[in-house]
Amino acid sequence: MKLLAMDSALDGCSVAVLDGPRLLAHRRREEARGQAEALMPLVQAAMTEAGLGFTALDALAVTIGPGTFTGIRIALAAARGMAVALRLPLAGVSTLEALAAGIPQELAEANLRVAAIDARRGEVYVQGFDAGLRPLDAAALLPLDAAASRLPAGPVLLAGSGAPRLLALLGSGRARLAPGDGRIDARQVACRALARPLPPAGTAPEPLYLRAPDAKLPGTA
């Protein structure tokens, strides 16, 4: 099973090419700006390094959000275009699941995992997962205090850009920060896509925004 995974939903972008569990190539770029320009050259470089033509791929995977609205759409538009051209299945993976999957398994064994992404305006995108990465609740956009009070009982490992602010509310008795830089990596996106059945080719995942567009109806304040 040869799979190409992409992400550009938060600050930066990354690409991974896997053959089953084996990583063939990986690219990552940290800058938040210029993702629309940087992503496809990274994909091209990773495929070249992997020694694969696009027709050798069996599936594609991409993050669907939550994240920055434009960032979500950069990799998702590219992936949906590739899926149509190659007639391949395209798996959508949430950024929260990819972040939770980035917590090292040996640490996560006895802990619940909570992924939290800073959504600004005092809110976080948040979701809890058990040690087997099964979701404990639905991904949600919540004010920080509501997110903190929704956390499951028991020791919690926090991952993502919203983790430090949640920890500040919870205190170190209930939770601690997972090691790592809190960024999404396409490797985790690929692993999560491979952990369940692929969707049929010809279907496409929709973005997971969790926040409505900023738009005011005429006549409203």
Partner: peptide, 20 residues
């Protein structure tokens, strides 16, 4: 509108790269 332009351009890039 840049958000829309990005969707079209990236879709095109995906098709172009995948098909050569």
């Amino acid at each position: 509108l840049i958000g829309g332009v990005i969707v079209g351009l990236l879709t095109a890039k995906g098709i172009a790269l995948a098909t050569g």
